[in-house]
Design a protein around this nucleic acid. Structure first.
Lengths: 234, 234
DNA sequence: ACAGTTTGTTTCGGATTGTTTCGCAGGCAC
DNA sequence: GTGCCTGCGAAACAATCCGAAACAAACTGT
């Protein structure tokens, strides 16, 4: 499930949006000010950032500038003011889109999805995910490691798919579990660990700097495979 | 120079935009109808497609759908009608952005640039950080010292990343801690010192004039690695 | 029903991270 | 230069988290 961070001081409004986004399968995480926002940006590692320009203290532009110093995350700015100057400077600061308030929630969702769609590697025509030394084919449900087909169980394959679809993304055990099975969330076992462990073993990924699946201590796991260079362009 | 294809039946308008885009270093290629547009899409191989919805014959939505069957090119739709339904369906058809007419040319240029910026290779901040004797790769989460891969824990790696991303910047312990974990601000332990110490050790950075991480007495730490020649700008 | 496979739980050893403490070095006053 | 005080480095210890083996439960196909 996609995760979006909203920085907006209007809590009422945030909660409405949160419920609305949920209906489209998007998890909206809310922050009320710049400080909380920057913290959650690191802790939650969202896929996209929604930034209200009008904030107490640091304003949206400043946050945008700050975030852009260290992150490439897509940013959509939200503002009451509809000035062209505003919109243009927002976009030039590195924002990816700019939506004027009041906006239709439906449109905002559509714009969020439009941007996320581009980032999903799975949207390219050939369904295959190709990395150096690893090819995952979601259609055929096969994984090939260094030319050798791997004999994965369906759960192991799903797990690999979840990880490989979002290279570099830090996924918590909770997130992995809720993607694997419906919304279970509650985690008190080591099921994910053991699946990762078995998958790693079959991937021959036992070297110390893991080639494919890395452990983020205290957080979860992350896929770090290097995308192969032979990208397509139809 | 970026190349953009505009499909619009208003030739006068197209020519104005063409001149305007040129001032921003963007070559605007114009087509007056669907047929010409699809032909030029193949012939000119533009980086982005501007699509007027109101066209004689095939309308913009249809063209969008058709283009999307074979191409991933970014599409911005232009329309007179400002309906939310319109905008949403445009975005859901695979358009990347949707601008209502009348629009400010300046804003359109900014939106075009925002999308093109993402496609440019080398723009990605996730490129490797290259210093003399040290390469940090945020994607693979690896660090290489004098050609030797370093065996860093995930926290050590995060710390190195924080420092190496802002060479020369003096970072207080507070700042480092709030980037590493959420905001704890209140610092009464020596956690950062220890992590720096362990990191230095693994970096083989024990010489007196520290090669990579320098202590700023009474303030914090600073990364002093020398950027290698071929690094790209922040 | 049965055997084999797949998935989940328990448990323990080891790795990673955090805290305390002590010795030492850098800065400051004289 | 000398002595003092503050801040830093590192070792030792403690708390937390992860990896893997062993075992149990659930599922599959016959």
């Amino acid at each position: 499930m996609a995760k979006v961070l909203l920085i907006d001081d209007d809590r009422k409004h945030s909660e409405l949006l949160q419920a609305y986004f949920k209906r489209f399968g998007i998890q909206l995480v809310c922050a009320g000010d710049a400080q909380e926002g920057l913290r959650k940006l690191r802790r939650e590692d969202p896929d996209l950032l929604l930034l209200d320009v009008m904030l107490p203290g640091k304003d949206g532009f400043e946050i945008c500038r700050e975030v852009r110093r260290t992150s490439d995350i897509p940013i959509i700015m939200l503002t009451a003011r509809g000035d062209v100057i505003d919109r243009v400077s927002g976009l030039e600061l590195g924002a990816d889109d700019y939506v004027g308030k009041p906006f239709e929630p439906r449109e905002l969702v559509a714009r969020v999805q439009a941007i996320l769609r581009r980032l999903e590697p799975g949207h390219s025509r050939s369904g295959k995910l190709v990395f150096e030394g690893l090819v995952v084919d979601p259609d055929a449900r096969t994984a090939i490691i260094d030319g050798q087909p791997a004999d994965l169980t369906s759960m192991e394959f799903e797990l690999l798919l979840i990880l490989a679809r979002r290279p570099g993304k830090k996924l918590s055990r909770d997130e992995i579990l809720s993607e694997l099975r419906g919304i279970d969330a509650a985690i008190l076992t080591r099921a994910v660990d053991i699946m990762v462990s078995r998958l790693r073993h079959k991937l021959g990924d036992s070297a110390k700097p893991s080639r494919f699946i890395q452990t983020i201590w205290g957080r979860g796991y992350s896929f770090v495979g290097v995308p192969a260079a032979d990208a397509e362009s139809p």
